[in-house]
Design a protein around this nucleic acid. Structure first.
Length: 224
DNA sequence: TCATTAAATTGTT
DNA sequence: AACAATTTAATGA
């Protein structure tokens, strides 16, 4: 099992750091295990950290006044989130819940802002990430309003192939149908039907504990 | 390495 | 939501 430091070093942004900066990151970043179903962070709390999913799967969601949850996106291993909230001085607008046992890194706000101020390459990587996330948000809005369950599942999975937000994801996505259901906001049963339809259409292959996608473009083009 | 058991996931109602 | 069937992971001989 790789250590927290090793997993952090694999991130794209970590490659931009000087040895001194790397030292501060290692010294100040806290890594903890978050069990399945527990909060990684809560809505409304002060934003003190930039958060990384070293291992596992986390969903970003909010809860309506009626108590209905709405998922915005899923963050798999290697993904970092919350940079937008760190730049604003507001309580955290969304909550994050671990969908499986996960290793989560918490990088202090002060260190994050210091890196932005002092390292232009780091700053650029973060800009790219925010830009990618905007594109992803647009895609989610579109699929939510225009597509049926099969299309939503397809777009959700296709979003996981974004190489800028989530580097090093192979062609096999190890997300169980239950996890996919929690991410797209459908019942597990409906997701089970949807992935079978997608398999019929030759867009993906259903496997035990996940799906295999041989052609992400084809998945992205599935707009029904 | 193989067989047995427990746990996770799937498929269906 | 509940159930049975299937697959994987873990355990010990």
């Amino acid at each position: 099992m790789a250590t927290g430091k090793e997993l952090i070093a694999q991130s794209k942004w970590a490659q931009t750091l000087t040895p001194e900066e790397k030292g501060r990151v290692d010294a100040e970043t806290v890594v903890r295990t978050v069990p399945k179903g527990s909060y990684v962070c809560r809505r409304g709390e002060p934003v003190h950290f930039w958060i990384g999913v070293l291992e596992g799967l986390v969903k970003i969601a909010t809860v309506s006044h009626a108590g209905k949850p709405a998922t915005f996106s899923g963050i798999p291993s290697g993904g970092w989130f919350g940079e937008g909230s760190l730049l604003k001085d507001m309580p955290r607008p969304y909550e994050a819940v671990a969908l499986r046992n996960s290793e989560i890194a918490y990088l202090p706000r002060g260190l994050f802002l210091w890196l932005l101020d002092n390292n232009a390459r780091f700053c650029r990587v973060i800009l790219e990430q925010i830009n990618e996330r905007l594109g992803q948000a647009m895609a989610i809005i579109e699929s939510d309003r225009l597509l049926g369950p099969e299309g939503r599942v397809a777009q959700c999975l296709a979003g996981m192939f974004n190489p800028i937000l989530y580097p090093r994801i192979g062609q096999s996505l190890r997300f169980s149908q239950e996890e996919i259901a929690l991410l797209v906001g459908l019942s597990r049963q409906r997701v089970n039907q949807a992935v079978k339809v997608l398999q019929e259409r030759d867009v993906l292959e259903v496997q035990y504990g996940g799906v295999a996608v041989h052609d992400p473009e084809k998945l992205r083009r599935f707009q029904e």
